[in-house]
Amino acid sequence: MPSVSMTVNGKQVSGTVEPRTLLVQFIRENLHLTGTHVGCDTSQCGACVVHVDGASVKSCAMLAVEADGSTVTTIEGLAGNADVLHPMQEAFRDNHGLQCGFCTPGMVMSAIDLVNNNPTPTDHEIRDWLEGNICRCTGYHNIVKSIAAGAAAMKGQKAAAE
């Protein structure tokens, strides 16, 4: 079986996997990072979105072996051990952008990628970007509000850091 190694949430990890192992399986089963979820089998729901080398991808549509040598960030990697929420996570809490929480990790990871690409997205751009993330609970209204607020907070944080 091939061995893979990658940096996940700042830590170097490795393991041997069957080639057919998906990145999401490696993350959930080998690394026990169960915040990344599987909500469909056609790569549409987005519950499994993580960042690979800085871009959001569906970890159910990528082989673990294809992530060999990559840098991966999952939802667990945002707040870190200090339990300080990322501004996007904070915005979801403040704006009631989640209910059952199942789509939430993918939603947050996707949102951060959006803001990385487009620091001041309009509501229309947010809705458009979320094509790959399905939520059955919220009706998206509060998710859109959360992402707009999260984008503003990320901008503020970046400005403060500069």
Binding site: S43, Q44, G46, A55, A61, E131, G132
Partner: peptide, 9 residues
């Protein structure tokens, strides 16, 4: 094409 994550891969 597809969604943002599909476009990234």
């Amino acid at each position: 094409i597809g969604d943002a994550q599909v476009r990234n891969r």
